Computed example of a mutant assay.
Amino acid sequence: MWKLKLPEGKDRWVFLLTVGVILCILAFPAGSKSSRMALPASRNVEEAGSASMAAGQDAAAYERELEKRVKEILRGVSGVGEVDVMIVLKSSAEKVIQVDNSTSKSVTTEKGSGTDRSVESMDQEHSTVLTGSGSGQEPVVAKEVYPEIAGIVISASGGGQPSVQAEISEAMEALFGLPANKIKVLKRVE
């Protein structure tokens, strides 16, 4: 076996740090994200990832749409001026799938020598309702629940005036059903 002579003192630590950084760089996979995700072995992981990305994109699009609508309505309010709106959601949208439930109950009574025995059994079956035919079947969505709003921050030119702050806060409480502590109105810096 060969022997490696390491430098002494401060040079030794610089050498070890350099080797460590090189090893870290070599540990990361090369190539772009799309080429790594295209591996057939990771197809299910890729599909799950794209589904969650789609849900995340849907939530982001929903946030942007709400922000745009709030911004448009507040621009028309007297004393508010130029507005920026940030809405934060607690989670993404949720789809409730239609499920068929069937329940069967049977009671068996046995009478023996001086004792009565009763056996009750209950079977429940749940199955998802599907639409379409063949391999193109999809579950039926009973309802879609939009995400709940966690909080709103509004930056307005007139946000320094207490009356404007109160009006904006009351409007957001009425519009989204949020408590006042989840709404913050700030004075916009021009």
Rank of each mutant, 00 (worst) to 15 (best):
V185Y: 02
K184E: 12
S106C: 01
S169H: 00
I154V: 14
K10A: 10
S169A: 14
P162Y: 13
E110Y: 14
A27W: 01
E138Y: 07
E82P: 00
S155H: 08
M86D: 06
L39V: 12
V145L: 14
D123T: 08
E138I: 12
V77K: 12
S52Y: 07
I183H: 02
E82K: 08
T109F: 04
L178K: 01
Q161A: 13
S163F: 02
V83P: 00
I97M: 11
L23W: 12
G49M: 15
E110D: 13
V83Y: 02
G31E: 09
A54D: 08
A59L: 06
G31K: 03
S91G: 11
Q165L: 07
S91M: 06
D100G: 03
E8Y: 05
E120Y: 05
V45P: 00
A142S: 13
I97S: 04
A30H: 09
E46W: 08
F28E: 07
V45H: 08
E8I: 08
K95E: 08
I87H: 00
L4T: 15
D100V: 10
G114C: 07
A174L: 15
G177I: 15
Y146A: 09
K184S: 10
M1D: 15
G136K: 13
K3N: 15
R64I: 10
G134L: 06
A156L: 10
A60G: 04
L26S: 04
S102E: 06
L89A: 07
V19H: 01
G132V: 13
A142Q: 14
E72C: 01
S52T: 12
T131E: 14
P7R: 02
I22T: 03
R117Y: 03
K90G: 03
